[in-house]
Structures are given as structure tokens and as C-alpha cells.
């Protein structure tokens, strides 16, 4: 049995953790909102400013997920990984990159034209070196994610996994992440599609 030991959500102007709302800023566009989240939590990570909005969204959700919940000293770098999915891949940045091609193509925007870069950013921040994968799904499919993550944990390929959904296009965005571990902690719930959907919906 594996356990959801923490969850986080960043959905249309609201930030929550373990079901509790932590921050709200409803009137800003996506870029301004993401910056306000960074500032609200007093984060200090200059690379944040270089990221595209998909990476900012996923990275912020991972910061909220892990802070005060994750004891990294329990794990080797190769024992922690990620399984993420979304609907719109990196289209938000693809559109912005292609605007620059007409003039001078921007390498700093081009590098974000892959959805898995958000995984790379979270790995760099935390030193996670385990298995990861990015899937494109039309809708959040908790059963599919649960199947992937359970395989990794049950076969001892990973001992902890961050999984969930990170999607943005223009000013529409939704990130919901779960920290899944093999060890039960206080307030942990069994890792299942059903329990993921309770948080996601």
C-alpha cells in the first residue's frame, strides 16, 4: 500500500495545500498571479523568473506540496521521481516562442517548448534524479496515473513520487500535485484513483 502524504493545488487564482486554502488573488492574469504566489510564499529562487508559465505553475505547486511535508533526508536522489500529465502540452509557450520566430527566434523560449521541462525544473530545484514521465491526456485520468505510480513504488524503482496534473493555456490554469510515499505519515490517505479525484474535483 502507498500513501498520499500531501497534496497541493493552484487553480484559477487560488492556492491550497491538503485541502486548505493558503492564498487567493482572483483578479490577476496568469503571469501576474504566478508572480504573486512566488512573492506570497517568500520564495527565493532566481531561476523562477526565466521559466515559462507551465514551469512556473508546476514548480510553485511542487514548492507548496513539499514545504513542511517532505523529509528529503530519508531518500537517495534516484529514489524520488515524477509522473505528470496535462491537456495542452507546452502550447502556451509554443505560441509565445513562435511569435519570436518572425523576428529573432528566442532560444530561451524555445527550450520551454516541451512539456517535460517542468519536471526538469522541479528535479533541478530538489536534486531528484529518479524516473519521470510526462503524458498528454485529454482529461485528468487518476486511474492511469495511479497505475503508473504504483508500478514504480511497488517495484522499488522509486520510494517517493510526485504525481498529478499541470496544465496552462493563456489565463486558464490548473495544477494539482500529490506526494506519494510508501510510508504512512500523519493525515496520510491511501493512494488511490478515488482519493486523487476527491482532491482534483
Amino acid at each position: 500500500m502507498n500513501y498520499i502524504t500531501a497534496s497541493s493545488g493552484i487553480i484559477q487564482g487560488k492556492v491550497s495545500k491538503n485541502g486548505q486554502q493558503l492564498f487567493e488573488n482572483k483578479d490577476a492574469g496568469a503571469s501576474d498571479f504566478l508572480l504573486s504566489v512566488y512573492q506570497h510564499f517568500s520564495l527565493n529562487y532566481p531561476k523562477f523568473y526565466k521559466m515559462d508559465n507551465l514551469s512556473k505553475l508546476g514548480w510553485l505547486a511542487s514548492e507548496v506540496l513539499l514545504r513542511d511535508s517532505f523529509d528529503q533526508s530519508k531518500y537517495q536522489p534516484g529514489e524520488v521521481g515524477l509522473v505528470l500529465a496535462n491537456r495542452n502540452s507546452s502550447l502556451d509557450d509554443d505560441i509565445k516562442y513562435y511569435e519570436t520566430v518572425k523576428d529573432i527566434a528566442s532560444p530561451s523560449l524555445f527550450v520551454y517548448t516541451l512539456p517535460n521541462i517542468v519536471i526538469g525544473e522541479i528535479c533541478i530545484r530538489n536534486g531528484f534524479k529518479g524516473e519521470h514521465a510526462f503524458y498528454i491526456r485529454e482529461h485528468f485520468d487518476a486511474a492511469f496515473i495511479a497505475g503508473q505510480v504504483n508500478y514504480l513504488l511497488d517495484n522499488n524503482i522509486l520510494r517517493a513520487c510526485i504525481c498529478g496534473w499541470v496544465d496552462i493555456l493563456g489565463d486558464e490554469y490548473k495544477a494539482v500535485l500529490f506526494l506519494v510515499e510508501k510510508q504512512k505519515s500523519d493525515n496520510a490517505v491511501p493512494f488511490s484513483a478515488e482519493n486523487m479525484n476527491v482532491v482534483f474535483d
Binding site: V111, C123, I124, E131
Partner: peptide, 22 residues
């Protein structure tokens, strides 16, 4: 099969190759 992440740089590979070796 096996999959890993360098946790080093988003557009440049690891300097050591340790992670691909993993």
C-alpha cells in the same frame, strides 16, 4: 528499462554521465 533525470540543467546534459549510467 530504466529512466532517470540529471537534475542539472534544462538544455545541457550532465557533465559526468552518472545519471544516464544510473
Amino acid at each position: 528499462g530504466g529512466i532517470s533525470n540529471d537534475a542539472n540543467h534544462i538544455s545541457g546534459p550532465s557533465r559526468t554521465g552518472k545519471e544516464l549510467s544510473f
